[in-house]
Every structure is written in structure tokens, then in C-alpha cells.
Amino acid sequence: MSVNWSKYSAPQAFYPLAGRLIPWFAIVAVALMGVGLYMGFFVAPTDFQQGESYRIIFVHVPAAWMSMFLYVVMAVWAGIGMGLNARLSYMMAQAIAPTGAMFTFLALLTGAMWGKPTWGAWWVWDARLTSELLLLFQYAGIMLLRTSIDDTRRADRSSAVFALVGVVNVPIIYFSVQWWNTLHQGASVSMATGSKMASTMLLAMLIMTVAFWLYSIAVILARVRCIMAERESLSVWDEQTAVIQDAAEAR
């Protein structure tokens, strides 16, 4: 009896592994969201300047951080895909884009919800807001470019180039509050100066960030499994349908 070793090469091993990891990331994400929301609404004090409106921070900042972080991770996978011509890397990049776009949209929306009571405007053409809006267009452009190209290999490469070129916008977003005189406030948490927030506020925000991060991992793994199954036949990866296939072949 010969063993089909190619069956255990990277993507084939990755598909069931991702399937086993998803529930764990999801459970911990939901648990941390519960803790983060409890701390954010019941433990963190009222802000002395902004009153209760500041509580938007517990979704705004994690969403904004994820929007930038996911873009960088997507660009890294795209780069690995191009460098090694690895299909799984391209699929990872493809799987990240919708979640990144969603967090960018949420960062902008919750930002508008915070801007209206704080600045008196839903939107201003400020460097931080404008560069974040550009990030949303980048995600949308990458996703549209992919759907507009029928050939999967060309779609992979084209969207990878787009993702890599666009990564320059991420430091622009991050440092925009320092480089330009923006209406948007500066970083409340920075590596250089530490935190300017009350410790319970900071803790709630960090817990929500970790929760959003784990949520992102869970949905991205679920999406990459869908992409793998759509590109190749599902039976290549999936144990359950492989059993059905064996049964069908035995008939």
C-alpha cells in the first residue's frame, strides 16, 4: 500500500488545522468581548472632558487598529505569494481583504458617531480621516480588481501588486496626527510616551482590541477555507465530504 505523501503537504494539512482552530479563536473572542464590554460600560469611569461619548473608543480604536494591521498582514501574504509563488499565501491575502474593509468602514462610521458630538461635524477632510477613507478605497479596489479578472493566477498577482503598493498609506494614517495639524486627536496610547488614559479605560480598550484580533483570525480562517474549497474541489481538503466521496465511489 502506497502512502500519498503529497496529501500532507502544506495546504492539505492547513485546511483541517484551520477548521480545528476556528472554534477556539471564536470562543475566546466572544468571551473577551464580553469582558471588554463589561469593563468599558461598567468599570471605566466617565471621561472628565467628553462625558459618556468617549465610550465609542472601545469599538472605534480597535476597529481602526485592525483596519491598518490587517492591511499590513494582507500585504505581507501578498508579498510572500509573489516571492514564493505560493497559492495558499494568495488565498490568505484574498481572505483578509473583506474583514479589513469591514473594520475600515466601522472605524470611519464610529468615528463619525464620535466626531458629531465632539467636533460638531460628522466628517472633516482632515489628514487622519482622509487617509483612512483612502484605505477603504484601497480594500475595495483590491477586491474589485480580483473579481474583474477571470484568470485566478493573474487576479492573485494583480491584487498582490495593488496591496503592496498601497501599504505606504498605513504609516501615513498612523503618523498623520503628528505630521499634519489634524482635528483628530493624537495617539492616546503610544510606544514612546505610554498611555494618557485612565488604566481601566486602557485595559477595556486593549481587551476589545485582542477580542477583535481573535475574531479576525477566526473569520479569516473560515473564509480561507471557503476560498480553498471553491478553488479546488472540496473533497481535496475536507474529511467529511471525502468520506461521502468514498461512499459514492464504492457504489
Binding site: T46, E52, S53, L109, K116, P117
Partner: peptide, 11 residues
């Protein structure tokens, strides 16, 4: 939410 309910809960 101290008068900011609409903004906080919409977010």
C-alpha cells in the same frame, strides 16, 4: 449615556 446614547449605541 449622558445624552450621547444615539451616538454610542449606533456605534
Amino acid at each position: 449615556m449622558g445624552g450621547y446614547g444615539l451616538y454610542v449605541w449606533t456605534s
